[in-house]
């Protein structure tokens, strides 16, 4: 069950936004299970200290096996294409060779929580998807305005410190709904 983030305590450092972290694992018979039934709420947080507290007890993405995802979204935004904050937007997708997931995820979420993207209210959340071959990092934003998405890309390149020639692809959620490729973030069938 969802629990809202506690107020930052005395001496804690508040974040610009509250966030919630979710976990999902594909079940054996996933075809019949709705996407959001697999989404497990882990915790919400409102300060830097609360974040590190939670982060230190959850397993690092690179240490997990199978078909699993962490979703870190602003509180109030469900990690689904249909959410009002997401439905007109899209995501940057970065494919990562095995072994890079934990470091890149940490760099990405630190940049997001620390408001390093400088695109106003645009950022919705981030996802790390552990898969059998490459892992997939994605950063979701509200609109598909090209000035904004280019700025997000530039910041991603700077903060992720990716190997040269890493491919980055932008995909609008309406496209994802149409083609049903990439992993599904929806109940839409």
């Amino acid at each position: 069950p969802f629990r809202p983030a506690p107020k930052p305590g005395e001496g804690e450092h508040p974040l610009q936004y509250n966030y919630a972290i979710w976990f999902s694992r594909r079940s054996q018979n996933s075809k019949s299970v709705q996407y959001d039934k697999n989404l497990k709420f882990i915790a919400s947080f409102a300060s830097v200290e609360q974040f590190w507290n939670i982060y230190s007890y959850i397993v690092r993405p690179g240490d997990m096996s199978g078909h699993v995802d962490y979703h870190l979204f602003k509180e109030g935004i469900r990690p689904m294409w249909e959410d009002d904050a997401n439905k007109h937007g899209g995501k940057w997708i970065i494919r990562l060779k095995k072994g890079l997931a934990s470091r890149c995820w940490e760099n990405l979420i630190m940049a997001m929580l620390g408001e390093q993207f400088m695109v106003g209210e645009e950022i919705c959340g981030a996802v790390i998807s552990i898969r059998y071959q490459d892992d997939i990092l994605s950063l979701w934003n509200r609109s598909n305005d090209s000035t904004i998405t280019s700025r997000i890309r530039d910041t991603l390149q700077r903060v992720l410190n990716l190997p040269p020639h890493t491919i980055m692809e932008y995909k609008e959620h309406t496209e994802s709904i149409k083609d049903q490729t990439s992993f599904r973030n929806t109940n839409f069938v």
């Binding site: 200290e49 590190w52 940049a111 408001e115 390093q116």
Partner: peptide
Amino acid sequence: GTRIVYDRSRLMQLRNSPLAR
């Protein structure tokens, strides 16, 4: 209003504070 911004090194520094455990 003013945005609350933290760079990577500040976040790493706060990771080691007693309140973060």
